[in-house]
């Protein structure tokens, strides 16, 4: 029999530290598969966040530079400007990108930096124990919103991907999910598109990936994937917000 699916080469054979049913490791695998397929291993630089994915350097067999909390896009800007032939991407969570790193992210996008951001949105602060994040949905219970998030007290969920899509510097902005195998393959397609747009030098690219956090949602992995599809994908609809390559074709 022929082997049709195996571990990507640039994903080290280390066991993941993530909780059972975590979406991070699925996204790690997709990124590693794309780096293999596109032959980027020698020139890829990953900027992991502070958050659950802080140990990404244990898994990716590529160059990695850890950033201070939220400053991924600023560090990536430096790398890409100093080494313009490299492929630079940040891998950030919702606390990193949409809370402490909002300024860096929005200004990097507005400058049209030639980097890719992979934004993993699981609607809670995962690593610190499930506190409310800017992306927490109304009514969602977390340790710091034990009766559910209320708009009058804690405000509304921050849809940063929608905001970035308005900026002229952004070239490709999309939101995907890891809810089902089909959606995982769609996520891979979106990531591939974002990588290609960066390599063509067209502008800033962002892919938001909705991902479950079974531990902090206090659910089994199977229930968390159901909640992701039934609740979170309704709050954060899956779509391509902006794709300037499609617009160019129309022109």
């Amino acid at each position: 029999m022929k082997k049709v699916f195996s571990r990507p080469k640039c994903l080290k054979p280390a066991p993941f530290h993530y909780c059972p049913g975590c979406g991070h490791s699925i996204i790690h695998r997709l990124v590693a598969e794309l780096i293999d397929e596109m032959g980027l291993q020698g020139k890829a630089i990953c900027i992991p966040p502070a958050g659950c994915a802080v140990l990404a350097y244990n898994y990716f067999d590529i160059d990695v530079c850890e950033s201070a909390h939220g400053r991924g896009c600023a560090i990536a800007t430096g790398f890409k400007r100093a080494l313009p032939d490299r492929f630079v991407f940040t891998y950030q969570g919702d606390g990193d990108m949409a809370a402490i790193g909002t300024a860096e992210t929005i200004h990097a996008a507005n400058r049209g930096e030639l980097i890719t951001s992979i934004f993993v949105n699981n609607a809670v602060y995962g690593m610190t124990g499930g506190q409310m994040a800017p992306t927490t949905m109304l009514g969602q219970k977390t340790t710091t919103s034990p009766f559910g998030r209320r708009s009058k007290v804690e405000g509304y969920p921050l849809k940063i991907t929608d905001l970035i899509a308005q900026l002229d510097g952004a070239a490709y902005v999309a939101r995907t999910s890891v809810g089902t195998p089909a959606k995982i393959l769609a996520t891979k397609k979106a990531l591939k598109k974002a990588f290609e747009v960066q390599l063509e030098g067209l502008g800033y690219t962002l892919v938001e990936v909705l991902s479950p956090c079974p531990t902090n949602w206090k659910m089994t992995p199977v229930d968390a994937f159901k909640y992701l599809q039934e609740r979170m994908e309704k709050e954060y609809p899956l779509q391509v917000f902006k794709d300037i390559t499609a617009q160019k074709k129309e022109d």
Partner: peptide, 18 residues
Amino acid sequence: GCSLCATMCPEVAIEVYR
């Protein structure tokens, strides 16, 4: 050998042969 399990597996623990 449809690979759905391997696509879904968060631990990349599954190899598929067809």
